[in-house]
Amino acid sequence: MNIFRLAGDISHLLAIFILLIKIWRSRSCAGISGKSQVLFGMVFLTRYLDLFTSFISVYNTVMKVIFILATLVTIYLVFFKFRATYDSNNDTFRAELLVIPIAGLAVLVNHEFSLFEILWTFSIYLESVSIMPQLYMISKTGEAETITSHYLFALGLYRGLYIVNWVWRYYTEQFYDWIAIVAGVVQTLLYCDFFYLYITKVIKGKEMSLPA
């Protein structure tokens, strides 16, 4: 554990709770892509199967359980409790076009051909693109509430901080995992456009709107 990794995890946790609080307080999931949330649910459920096979630390176990539960609650709020507010007409990204090729890629390109390792690889690849339905939705409607943009910023920052953590670990522990690194870089790059808009608009107190 190092400071970058810890900051990344806190940023990730913050993102998930910003989204939950936004939905709960406004009693609405307007502007939120349910598809992205389902993809994140799949990411956590396939990656954290090792909860049942290996104990790493209390921190590790608690964080995994929180990520899974909080994401499942978010999915419940979007598709059940506040379903009437879910903007499904604008949540039209074809998520299966991500999931199917990624499942194939995980089977072909992995560290070890075993069930848990392939599922872990699938979750790493899938996480890198899971935000695409949400970004697509924002570009389609041309706007995002300020709180939604805080959510996206925290979520993007998380993987960016993990990259710094990987650089740190490479020099201090000679540890690297190229699957995580490549996918993490792709994931962070997807947010670049958004980061630019966030810094130039949201921080200056303006609503986020994207050029058509």
Binding site: M1, R5, D9, H12, D50, S54, I56, S57, N60, M63, K64, F67, H111, E112, E117, W120, Y162, N165, Q174, F175, Y176, D177, A180
Partner: peptide, 10 residues
């Protein structure tokens, strides 16, 4: 080096 059994990162 990759620890295939235990992955400590989230």
């Amino acid at each position: 080096w990759i620890n295939r059994q235990i992955k400590d990162e989230l």
